[in-house]
């Protein structure tokens, strides 16, 4: 009961924009948390380094880590679940091109579970996967980016529940970088909510004039790739507006050769 009252308290704070949280608290005290990682299987391939996370949180206890990876298409269709048992300190490569996925891009969630987790529970903490994803055009050289958000947790009945906070008011996010060095860029958003989310993206030139003003709707568990051409390198900045408090995208910037990937 106490945990539901706490949830209602945080919900009202977030909803009304009174000292909002960046991330909600999972209801389940045993919950495992994950980013909504982005994968792509077009001319750019994806690798994920899956590590025994029990060995990162309390390495003195040598124990197996039981991992479930849930994969969704860009349209929110559940594609596959992968199960792994990792030995202590084990790290495994997951190559998305080998998974025969029926989608060129989408999202995946990585949930860890291990037996000796009393210390996490006692300290009101949750293990979270925000690990390292690589992208490559030749599947030899990988361009890495680490996790972007504490997006969601796995409930007792294996449902993915969002931890992203939102309000009734629109919030602004301003990625602290310039775009006028590249010819094209993508802003990637994933939706861990069970409801539709709207995003508004404005691009600006050097003098802060608006160049584009676009709206995107993102259904539950969907992934959107908002692509912008920047032929004359006019776009210098972007701003993102959403009821989500922290709409930070993954960004791909494309150059005459190769690409850069980072979280915004």
């Amino acid at each position: 009961m106490k945990i539901y009252i706490k949830k209602l308290y945080y919900f009202l704070r977030n909803f009304l924009k009174i000292k909002p949280l960046i991330y909600n608290f999972p209801i389940n005290k045993y919950a495992s948390v994950s980013d909504a990682f982005y994968f792509r299987n077009d001319y750019i391939k994806t690798i994920f380094f899956l590590s025994n996370i029990a060995s990162h949180t309390n390495p003195k206890i040598k124990q197996n880590d039981f991992v479930k990876i849930y994969i969704f298409s860009n349209k929110g269709e559940f594609l596959k679940i992968l199960n792994f048992t990792l030995k202590p300190f084990e790290t495994k490569k997951i190559l998305f091109a080998e998974l025969n996925l029926k989608a060129n891009y989408g999202s995946f969630y990585v949930f860890h579970n291990f037996h000796q987790n009393e210390l996490l529970i006692k300290n009101n903490s949750f293990v979270t996967e925000r690990g390292y994803v690589g992208f490559s055009e030749n599947s030899i050289f990988w361009n890495f980016v680490h996790g972007n958000h504490n997006s969601a947790y796995l409930s007792k009945n294996n449902k993915i529940k969002s931890l992203m906070t939102k309000s009734i008011f629109i919030n602004e996010y301003f990625p602290q970088l310039t775009f006028n060095d590249c010819d094209k860029f993508d802003l990637i958003f994933t939706n861990s909510e069970n409801k539709k989310i709207n995003y508004r993206i404005q691009t600006y030139d050097l003098e802060n004039n608006i160049i584009n003003d676009s709206n995107f709707k993102l259904n539950s568990f969907n992934t959107i790739k908002a692509s912008f051409t920047n032929n004359h390198k006019k776009i210098k900045f972007v701003k993102i507006f959403s009821k989500m408090y922290f709409p930070r995208p993954v960004i791909f910037k494309y150059y005459s050769k190769y690409f850069d990937v980072l979280h915004g």
Binding site: I53, N123, N124, S125, V127
Partner: peptide, 11 residues
């Protein structure tokens, strides 16, 4: 960063 909320510095 491997832990969310609570006593993260303990870990």
């Amino acid at each position: 960063e491997y832990v969310l909320h609570g006593n993260r510095f303990l870990f």
